[in-house]
Structures are given as structure tokens and as C-alpha cells.
Design a binder for these strands. Structure first.
Lengths: 122, 122
DNA sequence: TACTCATATGAATATTTGTTCATGTATTAG
DNA sequence: CTAATACATGAACAAATATTCATATGAGTA
């Protein structure tokens, strides 16, 4: 959501803190890298996807199982599974008509648990 | 974004996988907990906020420093800092007219780094 | 006091995004 | 081949959200 038609106003801090700001600027990762990082976390930032991921930490499941479990339409789940797949958070295998989804690696579970422990501490 | 005016269609998997689905259902955290977890990750899911957080891992900074660093308006930064503060990811201290923001704890940095290492692996 | 600077905030707006609906594709069964 | 089942997908719509603009607040200063 990037807009910016207006010049940025400066304040005196710019002069006072110039060294600090320049140092921080030099240590920031690439703009694009941080954008990708935000995109990565964005995938976790939806309760439907979180519930799907959490469910898959317990067992691989097919699309319709997940839809039943979460009481949502097959279409809605399928759309979200696509988002998760594109983010390389889940993988799938086909067995006849049925497609089973599972977590792509256990890194995902670690991230879920770390987030969970953070909100439990506060 | 919760809508659901339509009954969920069932498929045969529901019968075949019933035991698995029931077991997973029993092991899912509270609906509200997962919702909170999604809200938590949602805060990381914006590139402006990610850049703010990453900058604050290097040094505390005032609002106008951050605005200059990221080449954005003071207002936009201030709005996002409020989001970060409400999520308990940053804290602030006032020194005269200037308000300095910093990370609330180093747990935040761990989460950033874990996300970063994930996207670098893929 | 009046004035300036740094920050906060409410409303408006444009963009993004999640779900629904309709339909398409792949696989199996008859 | 035809029908049925499980899943995928494009378009439309509603809701959420990030930025801008205008303005308010709070602290120092003349």
C-alpha cells in the first residue's frame, strides 16, 4: 500500500541523531528482503491459515477434512491452501481423487510455537 | 473476515477420516487463542512495520528519525508505532518533546531472525 | 503569554484481501 | 463413454487496512 506524493518534512532530530540514523541505515537489510519478510509473516496473519497450519502439525489432511474440521467451504480452504503452498509452508500429495496436505518442514511448527509462547507471556 | 451463510458440503472423506479429524479437533487450541496468534503475526505482516522493527533492533530512535530513515511521513510512522505498541512489540520513553521508541524485549528480534532464516533457506 | 517543535489522532480514501459463487479439471466407478 | 467425486480457480463483493490530510495535544522556549 505504497503511496507518497508529498515531500517528507524534516525535523531537528535529523541533525542531532544523524550518526545514529546513518549507522542504522547502513545495517538495514535490502528493501526487497524486508518486503519478502513481511510477505512471509503476512501468511501467518490470518486465522483461517493459522488454524489450517496448526491442524497440519497434528496430521496430514485432505482438503475436505480441513473444510469439515474448520466448518468452512472447500473453496475457501482450497484458496488458502494455495497461499500456504506458494509460501512453501505446506506441501501436498495426491492419492487418487484425494489431495493430502502436510507441513513442508518442521520449521513452520517452530514459528507457530514461538508466536504462541510470545502471546502467552504477555 | 467471517461470513458463512451457506451450509458446508460434506464429502465421503468425512466418514473415512473421521477418527483423524476428531483427534485433530480435540488437540486444536481454543478458537480465540488461534485468532490472537493470527493477530500477532499480522503485525509483522507489513513491510513498514517490519522495517521499523528491524531498525529498532539496531538502536532506539525517535519518530522523526524513523520517518527520515524510511522516507515516510511522520504521521504514517506514528500510526504504525501505535499498532506496534498495542501489540507490545515496542515501548517508548519521552525526553522533552522527543519520544524514543525501542523494542519491548529481545523476543521480537528472535522472531524476526527466525522468519529471516526461513526465507533465506527457500 | 504566545509560539514552535515533536508527536498523536480522527476521517477520508485507495488498495488489499478473504470468502462466495460459478465453473473448470482430474480421477475413479459404473 | 458418462456420471460422480474431490479439488482448483477466476470473478465479484464485502470487509479490513495503510497512507494522507487536517488538526489536536504536549513540552519546551522567547
Amino acid at each position: 500500500m505504497a503511496r507518497r506524493n508529498v515531500p517528507i518534512e524534516k525535523c531537528d532530530c535529523d541533525i542531532i541523531h544523524q550518526e545514529v540514523v546513518d549507522r542504522v541505515r547502513g545495517r538495514l537489510p535490502q528493501e526487497e528482503t524486508l518486503y519478502d519478510l513481511a510477505e512471509f509473516f503476512k501468511v501467518f496473519g490470518d486465522s483461517t491459515r493459522i488454524r489450517i497450519l496448526w491442524a497440519l502439525t497434528e496430521s496430514e489432511m485432505c482438503v475436505c477434512d480441513i473444510a469439515n474440521l474448520l466448518n468452512m467451504t472447500q473453496s475457501a480452504i482450497s484458496h488458502q491452501l494455495r497461499v500456504l503452498k506458494q509460501a512453501a509452508l505446506v506441501k501436498n500429495r495426491r492419492d487418487g481423487k484425494v489431495v493430502y496436505y502436510s507441513l513442508d518442514d518442521d520449521h513452520v511448527q517452530q514459528i507457530l510455537e514461538q508466536g504462541m509462547s510470545h502471546i502467552n507471556e504477555k
